[in-house]
Design a protein around this nucleic acid. Structure first.
Lengths: 203, 203
DNA sequence: GTCTATATAATGATAGAC
DNA sequence: GTCTATCATTATATAGAC
């Protein structure tokens, strides 16, 4: 499929793909993030990921060594950008609540890192990789944003609330949360996040 | 361990197990609850479950039809008893918070239905089965205990908080939550649950 | 009532051709 | 740089012996 003759203009390759290691690696990684987010670590095979990237399964191991190492890079890629976190501490809880309700809506098909986390956490190996990723990115960023004592603890408690909500509303599809009024739900979530993020009153 | 030959004492079968359909079924179901809680729906095979029950994999399908139907019964069995919920609405939040911190402690190996839920939710089929189980048991019980409007929504929001905490502290092993002071953690969780369970102020 | 043996399909990973 | 072909393992589920 391809001739790289210089002057054979007419029959020049309709090249379905450039043979480029870096680009191929990139394509596999992008497919991996999507697939792992949709189906979790155990729920997807390397064949499937490779096919979405337009290559064969072999190249996955060629470029990443193993499924586990591919997952490690995918987690890092997925958690690097901010998704639900805003940068203004004053409006943080409200912003997060609003985006969360929006993204967990039944009609939304948003691919969120929290889904990657929830769907992969049942595998202990994957869970450890995800823990490291969370603490390195979102957790660390949020901790730095918070003032007062126990910033890490409060950040992870907020993550607990967010993750639990993703699980019950989007993954499980809890009837009460799916049919609830979004504005009402947003207010409740905001109240929860305010509590989770606040420094403790007593000591 | 029983020989049922009346007078053939010597050559009677050294029966390693009583051939009893009901008892075998029960044993399989008990093993299934444990295995599914430890490893999730996709994380365990029928062979493994059968072996723990002292039988072969064949009998699982014989008595339950399929792995999926076995899971359905296991979910029902696991969610039937109350685990973290107390029966006094006034002390509910505090009671749940205390038990939760205790059971998610690093040294605890408690097999909680929430673990079964979290570890199986990545499989869509299993997630639907779990959703039905939760709404039928714990969710319904909690809803009836609550007074005021939106009882279902508040109940599921509380479940979100509990599930998220199980995930971040026990499954992921978040450093901040593992090393946090348990009393401090309990106070924060109690505050979160109070908010989750309270009827909304405005409307 | 329970077993052994097997059918069928999928997995992660690798060897070697081009 | 990428492919086809294959290995070894494991999964659920079933057929038929005892």
């Amino acid at each position: 499929m391809s001739h790289d003759g210089a002057d054979l203009a007419r029959s020049s390759t309709p090249p379905k793909r450039v043979r480029n290691a870096a680009a191929t690696r990139e394509a596999i990684l992008r497919s991996a993030v999507i697939a792992f987010t949709r189906h979790g670590y155990d729920g997807v095979g390397v064949r499937e990921i490779a096919q979405s990237a337009g290559v064969t399964a072999m190249l996955v191991n060629r470029y990443f060594g193993s499924k586990e190492q591919l997952f490690t890079e995918a987690v890092d890629t997925a958690f690097a950008p901010r998704t639900v976190l805003s940068d203004n501490p004053a409006t943080l809880a409200g912003d997060v609540a609003a985006r969360l309700v929006e993204r967990t809506a039944p009609e939304s098909e948003h691919l969120d890192p929290f889904l990657l986390m929830l769907r992969s956490a049942s595998n202990p190996r994957a869970a450890e990789i995800v823990r490291a990723g969370v603490e390195r990115h979102a957790g660390r960023y949020l901790s730095e944003l918070l003032e007062g004592p126990d910033a890490d603890e409060r950040a992870m408690l907020a993550h607990s609330v967010i993750a639990g909500f993703w699980l019950m509303r989007k993954m499980l599809g809890s009837t009460a949360l799916v049919t609830a009024d979004p504005d009402e739900l947003t207010r409740r979530l905001e109240a929860l996040l305010v509590i989770a993020l606040s420094p403790s009153r007593e000591k």
